[in-house]
């Protein structure tokens, strides 16, 4: 159920602006990979390139390859809609659909692409997805209430339930805890530990402790200089990156001796 991601010579552009240069990395299935690096170095950009969400921005495009178990996502024959079904995404701000109930939010992805499921199947899927997102106990008595009535942390877990309801191979998370309080953050971090067993998880975070706590592998991105494209500087096991990095700039960033 979980797939390997590889990028080859990945260059990412916003119109004329070259945002990220030559990223080559391999992300193993059933692992949590953290992207770290200073603001504006292209973490979100790389993340969004992994499920072709990058190209929904006007003028944005990608050069190079992203392989999901060997299949190039940017092949002309590949439909971006199918890619996004396999590679789910959780955003920085929780974004449940405000016009839908909790239950309908979980089913939002399943209802797409003319899929039909019976009422019983739907109920089961809602329960298993919400349980998978550690939210079931908190909302099981009010599934028909609006999703936007939940707390921020609950909303973020609802969004994760929505993402896992379509059984993706990979889950991408862009600073999923940055809008949450410490307790909600803990709940989401616990959830990431659970998700690791089934999915390939990639998470962008500005929180070093969080990266150290949840990830198996850490990738450090950096800018050579302002206005230059971002680059992948170093990627390796999280313990190693945090204790004994190869690159000086990684060490500077991790120890906080950085711009």
């Amino acid at each position: 159920m979980s797939k390997r991601i590889e990028t080859k010579n990945l260059d990412i552009y916003y119109g004329k602006f070259h945002a990220v240069q030559n990223v080559n990395m391999t992300i193993e299935p059933r692992s949590v990979t953290a992207f770290i690096g200073s603001s504006g170095c292209g973490k979100s950009t790389v993340l969004r390139a992994l499920n072709r969400m990058h190209e929904v921005i006007n003028g944005a495009y990608v050069k190079g390859e992203v392989l999901l178990d060997g299949v190039n996502l940017y092949d002309k024959k590949v439909d971006p809609v199918r890619v996004r079904r396999q590679v789910g995404m959780v955003f920085q701000k929780p974004n449940p659909f405000p016009t839908m109930s909790i239950k309908e939010n979980v089913l939002a992805g399943v209802r797409l692409n003319n899929a039909r499921i019976s009422g019983k199947q739907a109920d089961e899927l809602v329960e298993s997805s919400l349980k998978g997102a550690n939210l079931w106990n908190e909302v099981k008595d009010r599934l028909d209430n609006p999703g936007s009535g939940l707390s921020g942390g609950q909303q973020q877990r609802l969004v994760i339930a929505r993402a896992i309801a379509v059984s993706p191979e990979v889950i991408l998370m862009d600073e999923p805890c940055s809008a949450l309080d410490p307790i909600s953050t803990l709940a989401v971090e616990d959830l990431i530990q659970v998700l690791r067993d089934k999915y390939t998880v990639v998470i962008v975070t500005h929180n070093m402790q969080q990266a150290a706590r949840v990830s198996d592998v850490t990738a450090f991105f950096n800018l050579e200089a302002q206005g230059k494209p971002g680059q992948l500087i170093e990627m390796g096991p999280t313990d190693k990156i945090f204790s004994n990095p190869e690159e000086k700039s990684t060490e500077d960033y991790i120890t906080g001796r950085f711009g």
């Binding site: 809609v81 797409l112 993402a163």
Partner: peptide, 23 residues
């Protein structure tokens, strides 16, 4: 945010419009 939520779930443009824009 809502449009991207829909697209990231694998919605086509028309589905995105029905799921996020019109409601």
């Amino acid at each position: 945010l809502h449009e991207e939520a829909s697209l990231a779930l694998g919605a086509t443009k028309w589905e995105m419009i029905r799921q996020a824009v019109i409601p």
